[in-house]
């Protein structure tokens, strides 16, 4: 098993797309494969620029990603895309349709697009997103674009993974911007007001401006607001320029280094959390979990006491 993973890694690093596809599948399936692969490829990572695109469902994220890929390709940069769609909590299945908007790049040898389902992870990404970014990085992509699931107030994990976050909003969101204030609106380095062809774009821009005025400026970067038209070509260049400016700002201000350190810390905590949960499931089988659930439901015991009692059993895994 391990030796065939080594072979895959070897192939991936030498530019084999099939191997890259398979490595991402392994990462999605099982965190111990991720652990092995990341430990092997880590020295090759850290070169790519990571761009996050987030915003409410249907706001035009995929359409904008499509346009941005074209911009990067015009400068002959190699691009990886991870596009995330939700897993149905009822069936565990998913229809991954972000790709439909990116069809102009399907056969471009320097573009690799991977669709991913959340598989139960909250926060707007999937468990394997951060590791898959590392695989795309080791593959030699200059830029990696992540499209989150349709996001609202709580899906803010993209900020831990990306260098630059673009928040896409649309005019007809109206006063929803108010509601989003505490969530994704706080993580934007750039705001794209998409579907600027429909009424209310100016009002939307004004609302974002007002919201930004209330929040303190973050380390000398004032988030620009750009009008975009995801289904047309206008606006894409302005957004692209804004993104490049932010990248430049990150490098010149030393923020990039700080972000990398913060990302390292976030990675540690995230991996540890997942490890705990995995070990928990290894230690306690479904029947026992059901029994414990019953005890909690019938008020025989409270969840904290149960955890206290479980800790000795979990310790042997550490």
């Amino acid at each position: 098993m391990i030796s065939s993973i080594d072979e895959l890694i070897q192939k991936m690093v030498s530019g084999d797309k099939r191997a890259l596809g398979k490595i991402i599948t392994l990462m999605e399936e099982d965190s111990s494969s991720s652990a092995y692969i990341v430990s092997k490829i880590y020295p090759l990572t850290g070169k790519a620029y990571i761009l996050g695109i987030t915003g409410p469902p249907g706001s035009g994220k995929s359409s904008i990603v499509d346009k941005l890929v074209s911009c990067y390709r015009n400068e002959n940069l190699k691009v990886g895309v991870i596009a995330i769609d939700p897993t149905s909590p009822f069936t565990g299945g998913a229809i991954l349709g972000d790709r439909i908007r990116m069809r102009s790049h399907y056969t471009d040898k320097n573009v690799f697009i991977r669709s991913m389902a959340t598989r139960g992870t909250l926060g707007g990404l999937s468990r394997a997103t951060s590791d898959s970014v590392k695989a795309l990085d080791a593959f030699g992509n200059d830029v990696i674009i992540i499209e989150t699931v349709g996001a609202g107030q709580v899906e803010v994990d993209i900020v831990k993974v990306a260098d630059t976050v673009v928040v896409v909003s649309v005019p007809d969101m109206g006063d929803t911007i108010q509601k989003l204030k505490a969530g994704i609106m706080e993580i934007g380095n750039i705001f794209a007001v998409n579907k600027a062809d429909i009424d209310g774009a100016e009002k939307c821009i004004l609302e974002i401006k007002m919201m930004l005025e209330l929040s303190e400026t973050k380390n000398g970067w004032v988030p620009p607001i750009v009008k975009t038209f995801g289904d047309r070509d206008n606006g894409a260049n302005e957004l692209y320029e804004a993104i490049k400016n932010h990248h430049k700002y990150l490098l010149e201000s030393g923020r990039q280094e700080k972000k990398k350190i913060a990302r390292g810390k976030a990675d540690l905590i995230y991996i540890l959390q997942n490890l705990f949960i995995k070990k928990f499931y290894e230690a306690i089988n479904e029947e026992e979990l059901e029994e414990l659930g019953k005890k909690i439901a019938s008020r025989e015991k409270d969840p904290y006491t149960i955890i206290e009692e479980l800790i000795p059993r979990l310790k042997k895994f550490l």
Binding site: R18, L20, G21, G93, L96, I100, Y106, T107, R114
Partner: peptide, 27 residues
């Protein structure tokens, strides 16, 4: 999807080339 699978749906008018490329990238 209802049976718990992940479906990559690429929409209309695909070329054989784009189908094969997609199959590989999406594994």
């Amino acid at each position: 999807m209802d049976a718990g699978m992940e479906v990559i749906y690429t929409g209309l008018r695909q070329t054989p080339e784009s189908i094969v490329e997609t199959a590989i990238q999406e594994d």
